[in-house]
Write a protein that binds this DNA or RNA. Structure first.
Length: 318
DNA sequence: AAGGCCACCTGCTTGC
DNA sequence: TGCAAGCAGGTGGCCT
């Protein structure tokens, strides 16, 4: 469910309250939420008990609490995960999976609520970031350590990360022969983009999802990356996208960006630019939404000519 | 390398 | 009214 803007809203909410706070008793309501903590719930409790949160950091859709033990409490929200800060006397949510009491504050606890349980929590070791730069987006004012939770080591930087190497990303994107949306969704190429913002950015850039990434021009790819940044920045300013109660911030409040969506979830409704009916296509076991006029489908075999020749020359000479 | 398909889960909506 | 199928913000594995 949540993509980068939604996770960043959650990160900011947690950071305000948790930085400098010790974690206290953990109640594992449903152990399936810890399936990625392979050592089991007892070990999870032991590693979190008494640990002080030194920063709350995000890369793409991954979020972690840096702990003074040197480990990280890593979270992914999956499709339906929520992290809530609640007074303990609020009744348990229907899909409450895990509860963490906070040291020195009987008035607030951290709850992980997740309907579908695609989300998870784990305590993990920190490893050096492959590029040696700060691992993600934090809040302390000083840069986060140049470290990453081990399971995040393969995740690329996201479009809002000041340490993103844009030249490198464009070079890698422009040699991909896969469809451009498939590339945008590849978290090892660029992270944080999911089905909503991929479709919205492609619409803004006037690019069909099935165009070959390698068929883009460099300025075209740059425009697409700028469209991703713009749509994510606007969504962040609106508190994220919620079209139902499954996405909320740490206080349980919805974001408003769904009102600004141009194509996502709008099959049959008029394109906000030209009025043509928005089209829904099956894509990777889910859906893609496009304006057929603003984002014409590529002709079969188009968009790979000159670059394919360049690649072939390179391949034959090295 | 790239793409197709599936699994992991629950719950809501749609169609017969 | 019931029941089945389809759909949902993600990730990752296995197979071609």
């Amino acid at each position: 469910m949540p993509e980068l803007p939604e996770v960043e809203v959650v990160r900011r909410g947690l950071s305000r309250r948790l930085t400098g706070t010790a974690l206290d008793a953990v109640e594992v309501v449903d152990p399936r939420i810890l399936r990625r903590h392979v050592a089991g719930p007892e070990d999870f409790r032991a590693r979190t008990a008494g640990a002080v949160v030194t920063d709350v950091v995000r890369r793409g859709k991954y979020l972690w609490l840096e702990l003074d033990s040197g480990e990280a409490l890593l979270t992914h929200l999956g499709m339906s995960g929520q992290l809530l800060l609640q007074p303990p006397d609020v009744p348990d949510e229907r899909h409450l999976r895990l509860r963490v009491a906070l040291g020195g504050d009987p008035g607030c606890e951290l709850r992980f609520v997740d309907q579908r349980i695609f989300g998870s929590m784990a305590v993990t070791a920190m490893v050096p970031a492959p590029d040696g730069r700060p691992g993600g987006t934090g809040s302390t004012g000083r840069p986060p350590a140049a470290l990453l939770p081990a399971p995040v080591a393969h995740i690329a930087r996201d479009p809002l990360d000041p340490h993103l190497d844009e030249g490198l990303l464009l070079r890698r994107l422009l040699v991909r022969r896969s469809g451009v949306k498939r590339a945008l969704l590849d978290q090892a190429l660029v992270s944080g983009i999911g089905n909503i913002y991929a479709d919205e950015a492609l619409w803004r850039a006037g690019v069909h999802y099935d165009r070959s990434a390698a068929g883009l021009t460099r300025p075209g790819a740059l425009r697409l990356l700028e469209a991703v940044r713009t749509v994510m920045g606007e969504a962040l300013a609106e508190g994220g996208t919620s079209f139902d109660s499954l996405y909320v911030n740490v206080n349980g409040e919805s974001g408003y960006f769904d009102r600004a969506l141009a194509v996502y979830g709008r099959a049959g409704l008029p394109c906000r630019r030209c009025g043509t009916a928005v089209r829904r296509d099956p894509f990777m076991n889910r859906s893609s939404f496009t304006c057929p006029r603003c984002q014409p489908r590529p002709r079969p075999g188009s968009g790979r000519g000159p670059r394919r020749a360049v690649r072939a020359n390179r391949a034959s000479s090295g």
